[in-house]
């Protein structure tokens, strides 16, 4: 721990967040997009734990548990939707989502 500071953790969290965001914006496979969304949540969680540790307050560490629970529920619903879409369309490429338009 001596060699790592709060800034190191935050830079890592920021990099992961931007990496996730880039993936969401650029990738076409819905499963990969969804993984990138989870990466963004994980980045926020990492920053939360780092702040909690270095500010010596427990609130952040407690919030992490809630975030993990929420993310699990979101994954359950999200994967169900993606699987149902795959059964219907036979693909999970976002280019193929063209039913809805004017």
């Amino acid at each position: 721990m001596e060699n790592t500071s709060l800034a190191h953790h935050l830079i890592l969290a920021g990099l992961l967040f931007v990496l996730g965001l880039t993936g969401v914006l650029l990738r076409r496979n819905l499963l990969v997009v969804y993984m990138c969304l989870e990466l963004m949540l994980a980045a926020a969680t990492l920053a939360l734990v780092a702040f909690s540790r270095f500010n010596r307050t427990m609130d952040g560490a407690v919030l992490v548990f809630f975030v993990i629970t929420v993310a699990a529920a979101e994954v359950a619903v999200g994967l169900a939707l993606i699987v149902a879409l795959f059964r219907k369309r036979g693909t999970v490429q976002s280019d193929a989502l063209t039913t809805l338009r004017d």
């Binding site: 967040f17 996730g20 965001l21 969401v24 819905l30 997009v33 969804y34 969304l37 963004m40 949540l41 926020a44 979101e74 619903v77 999200g78 939707l81 993606i82 149902a84 879409l85 219907k88 989502l97 039913t99 809805l100």
Partner: peptide, 16 residues
């Protein structure tokens, strides 16, 4: 389903 997936991605992004 398509609306659901689109809402999921948009909503997930906003939550993050």
């Amino acid at each position: 389903l398509e609306a659901g997936v689109k809402y999921l991605v948009a909503g997930g992004l906003s939550s993050a």
